[in-house]
Design a binder for these strands. Structure first.
Lengths: 212, 212
DNA sequence: TAGATTGTTAATCGATTAACAATC
DNA sequence: TAGATTGTTAATCGATTAACAATC
C-alpha cells in the first residue's frame, strides 16, 4: 500500500487541487505544469511535485501533468471505489444544511439513515426520501447494515452520550459538527471535530493580528 | 507586541485549552499542572509548557498554573477587548445555524446585520431582532459603521462576486462557509475557508486508512 | 538538439519533544 | 530540606523549499 505514505498535510491539500483541476478540465485544459498549479494554489512548484510524487509519479518530464490522470488519481484517494455508509444524527438547521451537502454535492458518502430525538422531527422525511428515525431505534435500524461513519449534528452533551453506543454498533468514525469538541478516545476510531466553534474562535485572533 | 510570537499551531490549540480549563473552573478546580493538561489534551507536558510560555510565563514552579490566570490569558488572546463587528451574508439553513452560534454562544463577535438576496428572506427578522436586509443595500447599510468581518454562507459563485464589494467597504476578513474555496487574494485581508466541503472530502480518506 | 519540466535528493525551516537547571 | 513542576535550551522530527540530474 502506497497510501500510508501520503501524509495528512498532503491529504488536506487534495480537495483544493481537485477543485482547480476540475475547473481546468471544464475549460478544456489538457495538461498543467507544477509551476502553473503552484501559482493558483499559492504554494511552490516544489511542493506540488512532492505532493504528486508521494502518490505515484505520473507526470511527464518536459511536458507536465495530464489533467485527466491527475483528476483520476486524486479522486481515487479522496473518494475510493466504495462510498462510506453514513448516518446523520440531528436534523436541525445545521444537520439539514450538511444533509443537503452530503446528498447533493459530496462524493464518497452514501447516506443510509437520519436520526433525531425530537417528536416533531421523527417520522418526517428529508428531501430525497430519507426518513428521520427515532434516535432510540439507532441499534435496531443499524443492525442489518453497519454504517462506517456517523455525522453528528447534535449538542455536545448528546454527542458524548451517543459515542459509546455508536462504537458499539461498529462505527469507525465520527464527524462531530457540534459547537464543541467531542473528547472521546476509542482505539482505532477516528473522531474528527469539524465544528464551527473552534474555527470562529481562532479566526478572530487572526484578523486582529493580520496573521495569515 | 508579544502577540506575533504566537504561532498558528498554538492559536489553533487555544479553544481546546479554553474548553478544558473552563470545565475545570466550573468544577471548582483552582490549579493544574502541564502534565495533567497534557493528558486531557492528548499531547505532551512539554508542548503545554511551550504553548503557555510563548504568550507569557505565568505558571509557578513546583506548583503549576492557576486556572483563573490561564483562562484570562487565553480569553485575552482569543477574544481581545473589542468584539469584531460582523455581518452575516446568506440566511439559509447554514446561515441560520451559524447565526445562532454567533449570537448565542460565540464570544468575540458582534453581529451588526444580516443580508440575503431572496425576496422571501428580505424584511424578515432573525431571532434577537436582527433584520434581514437586501444584499443590494450592503454598501448603504455599512456606510455608517464598517464591519470587521463578513461571514459568508452563500454559494461559491455569489461569494466570488461579493468579494470585491466587501473589500471596497473596508472589510478585513471573510469567513467563507460555502462548500467551496473562495479563491481570492487581497493584500492584507484574511480569507479563511471554513467550509464543510473540504473537511468531508478529506475525512473519507482518513477513515478508510485509519489515519489519525 | 535545445528548452522545458519532472522526479528526487539535499538543505532549510519550523514545530514538537526531551532534558534539566531554576525555584516554588 | 525534599518533591514537584516550571521555564528554557537542546535534540529530534517532519514538512517545505531549493537544487539539479534525468528525460521528454
Amino acid at each position: 500500500m502506497s497510501q500510508n505514505k501520503v501524509s495528512l498535510p498532503v491529504i488536506r491539500r487534495l480537495p483544493k487541487y481537485y477543485r482547480y483541476i476540475s475547473d481546468m478540465k471544464k475549460n478544456g485544459v489538457v495538461k498543467v505544469s507544477s509551476s502553473e498549479l503552484a501559482r493558483m494554489m499559492g504554494t511552490t512548484a516544489s511542493q506540488v511535485r512532492q505532493d504528486f510524487n508521494c502518490f505515484g509519479g505520473f507526470g511527464q518530464q518536459g511536458i507536465g501533468y495530464h489533467i485527466d490522470v491527475l483528476l483520476e488519481e486524486i479522486s481515487r484517494l479522496l473518494f475510493s471505489e466504495r462510498k462510506l455508509n453514513t448516518i446523520l444524527i440531528g436534523t436541525g438547521r445545521l444537520g439539514r444544511a450538511i444533509y443537503s451537502y452530503l446528498t447533493a454535492e459530496a462524493r464518497g458518502y452514501h447516506l443510509m439513515a437520519a436520526f433525531d430525538r425530537s417528536e416533531s422531527e421523527i417520522g418526517r422525511t428529508l428531501p430525497g426520501d430519507v426518513p428521520i428515525s427515532d434516535i432510540r431505534d439507532l441499534e435496531t435500524i443499524c443492525a442489518g447494515c453497519v454504517p462506517d461513519v456517523a455525522v453528528l449534528c447534535v449538542p455536545r452533551q448528546s454527542a458524548m452520550q451517543l459515542a459509546p453506543q455508536l462504537v458499539n454498533i461498529g462505527i469507525r468514525g465520527f464527524w462531530n459538527f457540534s459547537h464543541y469538541d467531542l473528547s472521546v478516545d476509542y482505539e482505532g476510531i477516528t473522531v474528527e471535530n469539524v465544528h464551527l466553534g473552534d474555527s470562529l474562535m481562532t479566526l478572530g485572533y487572526r484578523v486582529r493580528n493580520d496573521q495569515m
